[in-house]
């Protein structure tokens, strides 16, 4: 597979950058995300997350069951800040 293949389109992270992270000893999707920024974009890793799991299984010689998906963070889709700010919670009343 080509080294400059894009794994994360949002943050333009290539396969070779993910492999570099694995060579450094990183073994989870979360660590690779923090090191390469793959998964930090608007889609929050919806595409690259699984690709990175695949690369980990192959390059780090891990069993598929050992590779955990990255942490999903709210909001699931980008939400305008003003919408979040207008939320009134019980604690604030």
């Amino acid at each position: 597979m080509e080294d400059d293949l894009l794994i994360c389109r949002c943050e333009e992270v290539t396969r070779s950058e993910v492999e570099e992270a694995i060579r450094m000893g990183l073994r989870t999707v979360n660590e690779i995300k923090r090191f390469t920024r793959a998964g930090f974009g608007l889609c929050q890793g919806k595409t690259c997350g699984r690709l990175i799991c695949d690369i980990l299984i192959r390059e780090a010689d891990m069993a598929p069951s050992e590779v955990l998906p990255g942490t999903s963070r709210p909001p699931v889709r980008p939400i305008p800040t003003r919408v979040l700010a207008n939320r009134v919670s019980k604690e604030d009343e």
């Binding site: 608007l42 929050q44 963070r73 909001p75 980008p78 305008p80 800040t81 700010a85």
Partner: peptide, 11 residues
């Protein structure tokens, strides 16, 4: 202007 920006993650 932050009102017009979308939040993409919270941790």
């Amino acid at each position: 202007i932050i009102a017009d920006l979308a939040v993409i993650r919270q941790f």
